[in-house]
Computed example of a mutant assay.
Amino acid sequence: MTTELDYSSVLTGAAFMFYEFKQVATLKDQGLSDEEIRKKVVEENLFQHAKISSLQRGLPSILRRVNVLDDVLRKMVIEESVEVGKAINLYAIMKTDRLFFEFIKEVIQEKFQTNNYSFEKKDLNMYFTVKAEESKNIAEWTEATVQKLKQVYIKILLDTGMLKDKKSDELNRLIIDEQIKEHLRQIGDAKYVQAMGE
């Protein structure tokens, strides 16, 4: 997929959602279509969300993520450790969300390259300010949307282990399983491996 993704704020409704991601990957592996998965998730409340609306808001993003995985990566999500699954989920988020990928590449990867493990709110604020100057689309988003995205980005960093904990501003390099790195390189997605700090 070489088409350039548009900037989007859909992550406000999806966040990391690893548990849901793994369930959808499993259903996909069983041969269910997107439509069948949507139906099953909603009718059986598979994600066990209190509100159907939040379930329906997150599901399209989860499906998009699972759909960018090939059979090998999908099997890894289902069969390998939680750490492997989380790294693949992070890859899938970057692959389906241009703004988040650029954040990881331009902010986090850059810090790792200079051995700077400090991550502050101002890094995130500066990133969104620059992007709003570069993109009319982002400039038109409400302050509430931008704030929500910032919260989601921090939550993803926490959920993946890239940010040590909520109180600290310390970044961690992810230890990515060799088979994931190798596979992503083979399919031409080495840039995502680099963005994760390898």
Results as ranks from 00 to 15, higher is better:
7 Y>F: 12
9 S>T: 04
10 V>S: 12
16 F>K: 01
19 Y>L: 08
21 F>Q: 00
21 F>T: 01
25 A>Q: 05
26 T>C: 09
26 T>M: 10
31 G>T: 09
33 S>V: 08
39 K>Q: 11
40 K>D: 10
40 K>G: 07
45 N>P: 05
46 L>K: 15
48 Q>N: 10
50 A>K: 10
55 L>Q: 01
55 L>V: 00
56 Q>Y: 01
58 G>L: 03
63 L>G: 00
63 L>M: 14
66 V>R: 03
72 V>A: 09
73 L>G: 05
73 L>A: 09
81 S>W: 07
82 V>Q: 08
92 A>V: 03
95 K>N: 13
98 R>C: 06
101 F>I: 00
103 F>A: 10
104 I>S: 07
105 K>Y: 07
109 Q>W: 08
111 K>R: 13
111 K>G: 10
114 T>P: 02
122 K>G: 11
122 K>C: 09
124 L>C: 11
125 N>S: 14
128 F>L: 13
130 V>M: 06
131 K>R: 10
132 A>E: 12
134 E>M: 08
135 S>N: 08
137 N>R: 15
138 I>T: 04
141 W>A: 03
143 E>S: 11
143 E>F: 07
144 A>F: 07
144 A>Q: 09
157 L>F: 06
159 D>K: 13
161 G>Y: 01
167 K>I: 07
171 L>A: 07
175 I>E: 14
175 I>W: 06
176 I>D: 00
178 E>Y: 07
181 K>L: 14
187 I>N: 10
187 I>A: 09
192 Y>F: 15
192 Y>M: 03
193 V>W: 05
194 Q>L: 14
195 A>K: 03
